[in-house]
């Protein structure tokens, strides 16, 4: 699905990613954990193509294509989805209207016919139910006046609508109470299939009780320094990150 090799990226001349390697295959769930400031969101931003990040070395191949060569929208159209750590509010832009436009542009990119109004509404109903997002919220301005939890659910709702191949969830669990966490995790699990993959960026092990990862990676100072099974997450939760530093003599 995606192969990241020796990725170096900087912002304002400051190197944040320092030779990151990661391979994710279809059907897999990967968790990336790491202390604040390690570069987790930077990785997500670089993959999504946010302005201001300079890739100084390395390659990213996504479904056989050079991902870094694609415009942000084309990355999305190829099936990459980023659930933002801080979803922004966009007053005046209707959530469903923009999703319909996005969906149709994605379809057009693949040479498919646009979705008709009836099918689209059906899809909205079906997918908003997955994350228990009030249909009224779904049609309001993007995230405007949403609570923190509603914003995160809206991200997963959008993901459900767009049905990506690879979803990157950047701290989707932060700020969620346990009910909201369960709803979001349940949504992610429902959408899981052998054809797609998920990268879950998180601080806390508790999300991984609900979204069970096949691999857990530790991102530290711009690199993945350790990879293990889901038990690694428990160990990190218990012992923090310092022991890894010592173990790896970082």
């Amino acid at each position: 699905m995606i192969t990241i090799k020796n990725l170096h990226a900087s912002i304002d001349g400051k190197e944040i990613l320092k030779g990151l390697n990661l391979e994710v295959k279809a059907g897999e769930v990967h968790a990336i954990m790491g202390p604040n400031g390690a570069g987790k969101s930077t990785l997500a931003s670089v993959l999504a193509g946010r302005d201001g990040y300079e890739v100084t070395a390395g390659t990213v191949v996504f479904e056989g294509k050079d991902l870094l060569d694609l415009k942000t929208e084309d990355r999305a159209r190829e099936g990459l989805f980023l659930a933002f750590q801080y979803p922004i509010e966009i007053p005046g832009v209707s959530n469903v209207n923009f999703l319909r436009a996005a969906l149709n542009e994605i379809k057009e990119y693949h040479g498919e016919d646009p979705i008709n109004a009836k099918d689209f509404l059906k899809l909205v109903r079906e997918k908003s139910a997955i994350v228990e997002l009030d249909a009224k919220l779904a049609s309001r301005s993007v995230n405007e006046g949403f609570s923190g939890g509603e914003k995160k659910r809206n991200e997963i709702f959008q993901m459900a609508m767009l049905n990506p191949k690879l979803a990157i969830l950047d701290e989707t669990d932060s700020g969620l109470d346990i009910d909201a966490l369960r709803i979001v995790a349940n949504g992610v699990n429902i959408l899981k299939s052998p054809e797609n993959a998920t990268i879950v960026i998180t601080h806390y092990q508790r999300l991984l009780d609900y979204i069970v990862p096949d691999f857990v990676h530790v991102l530290f100072d711009g690199k993945i320094v350790k990879t293990g099974s889901k038990e690694l997450a428990l160990e990190l939760e218990e012992r923090g990150y310092d022991w890894i530093k010592e173990e790896l003599a970082l």
Partner: peptide, 30 residues
């Protein structure tokens, strides 16, 4: 225009042009 918002919309698959148009019409709509 809020460039963060433009990026958000593009990250969902909208072209840059569509994203900007959407933002402008949202601004002027009221």
């Amino acid at each position: 225009l809020d460039e963060e918002a433009v990026f958000y919309l593009r990250a969902r698959g909208l072209s840059e042009k569509s994203a900007r148009k959407l933002m402008i019409s949202a601004f002027i709509d009221d």
